[in-house]
Lab assay of single mutants.
Amino acid sequence: TLFEALYDYEARTEDDLSFHKGEKFQILNSSEGDWWEVRSLTTGETGYIPSPYLA
């Protein structure tokens, strides 16, 4: 399933992933509550992002 970022986000820890509004992601793991592990389709990087920032 693909999701798109609604807002920009700046990583706060080394496990987080910074991203920009409009960036698209593949969800790798959504079992961690509000923090999902994703792969950016723009950069190929993986990390955790806050799920409320996605649509």
Results as ranks from 00 to 15, higher is better:
L28D: 00
Q26H: 08
L17N: 00
S18L: 05
S18H: 05
D16A: 15
W35R: 14
W35C: 09
P52V: 15
D34K: 12
T46V: 14
L41F: 11
D8E: 07
R39G: 03
E45T: 13
D8Y: 03
K21V: 08
D34P: 08
D15M: 14
T43F: 08
S51N: 15
T43K: 01
F25L: 06
I49A: 13
T1S: 11
T46Q: 11
D15R: 15
E23N: 14
K21G: 02
S31M: 11
E10Q: 12
I49R: 02
E4S: 04
W35Y: 11
T43M: 03
E14Y: 07
T1I: 12
I27E: 09
D34S: 08
L17E: 01
G33N: 11
E37I: 10
L54G: 06
K24I: 14
P50L: 11
G22P: 01
F25I: 01
Q26A: 07
S51Y: 09
D34Q: 08
L2Y: 14
V38C: 02
E4G: 10
D8K: 02
T42E: 15
D15Y: 15
T42M: 09
E4V: 14
F25A: 08
L28E: 01
Q26S: 05
S31A: 11
W35I: 09
Y53I: 08
Y9R: 02
F19N: 01
E4A: 05
L28S: 01
T43E: 01
S51T: 06
H20Y: 12
D16P: 02
E14N: 13
E10L: 10
L54D: 07
D8T: 04
A11P: 04
H20K: 14
W36C: 04
D15H: 15
F3D: 12
G44I: 12
W35L: 07
L17Q: 02
D15Q: 14
L17H: 01
T13E: 08
R39W: 05
Y7D: 08
Y48H: 10
Q26D: 15
T13N: 14
S18F: 06
S31R: 09
G33T: 11
L54M: 10
T43G: 02
E37D: 01
L54P: 06
E10W: 10
F19Y: 07
T1R: 11
G47N: 01
A11G: 10
G33Q: 11
D15C: 15
E32R: 14
R12T: 14
Y7N: 06
P50K: 10
E45D: 07
E14G: 11
I27D: 00
W35F: 08
S18R: 02
I49D: 00
E45M: 13
T1V: 12
S51I: 06
S51A: 14
A11Q: 10
K24D: 00
D8A: 05
K24L: 15
T43C: 06
W35E: 04
G47I: 06
G22Q: 01
K24H: 07
A55M: 11
F3V: 07
S18M: 04
Y48M: 12
L17D: 00
N29A: 09
A11R: 06
E10V: 13
S18W: 05
E45W: 08
V38K: 00
F3R: 06
L41T: 08
T42A: 13
R12Q: 14
K21I: 12
A11N: 03
Q26I: 15
P50R: 10
T42I: 08
I49E: 00
D8I: 02
S31H: 09
G44F: 05
R39S: 05
E37N: 04
I49H: 00
T13K: 13
D16V: 14
G44R: 01
S51W: 15
R12D: 08
G47W: 07
G22N: 01
T43R: 01
Y53M: 11
F3T: 04
K21L: 11
A55L: 10
T42L: 13
E32G: 13
D8F: 03
L17F: 13
F3H: 05
W36T: 02
W35M: 10
D16K: 13
A55P: 08
T13Q: 13
H20V: 14
W36L: 05
D8M: 02
S31Q: 09
T46K: 06
T46A: 05
Y48K: 14
F3L: 06
D15P: 05
D8V: 02
R12S: 10
Y9T: 01
D16H: 15
G22A: 01
T43S: 09
G33S: 11
W35D: 04
A11E: 02
S30R: 12
H20L: 11
R12G: 09
S30H: 07
Y9P: 00
T46D: 06
Y48A: 02
L41Q: 06
E10I: 13
D34C: 12
T46F: 10
E10S: 09
Y9N: 02
